[in-house]
């Protein structure tokens, strides 16, 4: 069920501002790909183009192709609503809906879709909630307080709730934008363990500013950098994580992973 992503020659704009230029790469199904690079070089921007969240920002648009199992998600007959359902996203800051209970947060996405033949009775919803929360390693912690507001959880729990919410709609791909940057080390470990489990079933792309984290969770790593001061960001190189961190091809990558700048 996980799908592959092929990005070719993607230019990403905020109105007139070209933020990222000429990005080309592929992501294999059921792998974890990490985006690393100094801040402001366009990691989040690239990530958000993968599920058409980029165009939510007024004036933002892209040129180029993003293929999901061969289908260009920027084709004119593609419905961005379907794209986002297929490609789930977890944000930097945990964002459970504050007025909803834990339970309602998990089923928020599924409740939108009312498909013929799919039962949406209480029992099947209960099942989805349990499955998703177990999938996010959160079930044991919250099973006795599902009707409490999601905003009452700790930061790490909230982030796992957001992951549960994202996987409840059974996406093909999960995008994560620095999911641990607002969390303490223990919660970070919990999320990293979770990513380890999730990659069995999903294609995962994760942005992280933490190189140890990239090394721990990803099989492939892409390094982004600005082409120069005042110039657009670009992907410098991409390869197996082990290689990027030991023997990268580019000098800039080596400088960055060895901590010489950024």
């Amino acid at each position: 069920m996980a799908k592959r992503i092929d990005v070719s020659d993607l230019d990403i704009y905020y109105s007139k501002f070209l933020a990222v230029e000429g990005v080309t790469f592929s992501v294999e199904p059921r792998t974890v790909t990490a985006f690393i690079g100094p801040s402001g070089c366009g990691k989040s921007t690239v990530l958000r183009t993968l599920n058409r969240m980029h165009e939510v920002i007024p004036g933002a648009y892209v040129n180029g192709k993003v293929l999901l199992d061969g289908e260009n998600i920027y084709d004119s007959d593609v419905d961005p609503v379907n794209v986002r359902r297929t490609i789930g996203m977890v944000f930097q800051r945990p964002n459970p809906f504050p007025t909803m209970s834990i339970y309602d947060n998990v089923i928020a996405g599924i409740k939108l879709e009312r498909t013929k033949g799919v039962k949406r009775d209480r029992a099947s919803m209960d099942a989805v909630v349990e499955k998703s929360l177990r999938g996010a390693n959160l079930w044991e912690e919250v099973k006795d307080r599902l009707s409490r507001p999601g905003s009452g959880l700790s930061g790490g729990q909230q982030q796992r709730l957001c992951i549960a919410r994202a996987i409840a709609v059974e996406p093909q791909v999960l995008l994560m934008d620095e999911p641990c940057s607002a969390l303490d080390p223990i919660s970070t470990l919990a999320i990293e363990d979770l990513i380890e489990d999730l990659k069995e079933r999903y294609t995962i792309v994760i942005v992280t500013h933490n190189m140890q984290q990239a090394a721990r969770v990803s099989s492939t790593t892409a390094f982004f950098n600005l082409a120069g001061i005042g110039q657009p960001g670009r992907m410098v190189e991409m390869g197996p994580t082990a290689k990027i961190f030991s023997t990268p091809t580019e000098k800039a990558t080596e400088d960055y992973v060895s901590g010489r700048f950024g």
């Binding site: 069920m1 999901l68 289908e71 998600i73 084709d75 007959d77 593609v78 419905d79 609503v81 379907n82 794209v83 359902r85 297929t86 879709e113 498909t115 013929k116 033949g117 799919v118 029992a123 209960d126 099942a127 349990e130 499955k131 177990r134 999938g135 709609v169 059974e170 996406p171 093909q172 079933r201």
Partner: peptide, 26 residues
């Protein structure tokens, strides 16, 4: 609460939706 298997089971209906990105559009 129903006991459920850890392996995700997907109904054919939900697959048909999420696996076609192209929505019919006016």
């Amino acid at each position: 609460m129903t006991v459920i298997s850890p392996e995700p089971t997907r109904s054919p209906e939900s697959r048909s939706i999420s696996e076609s990105l192209a929505g019919k559009k006016l």
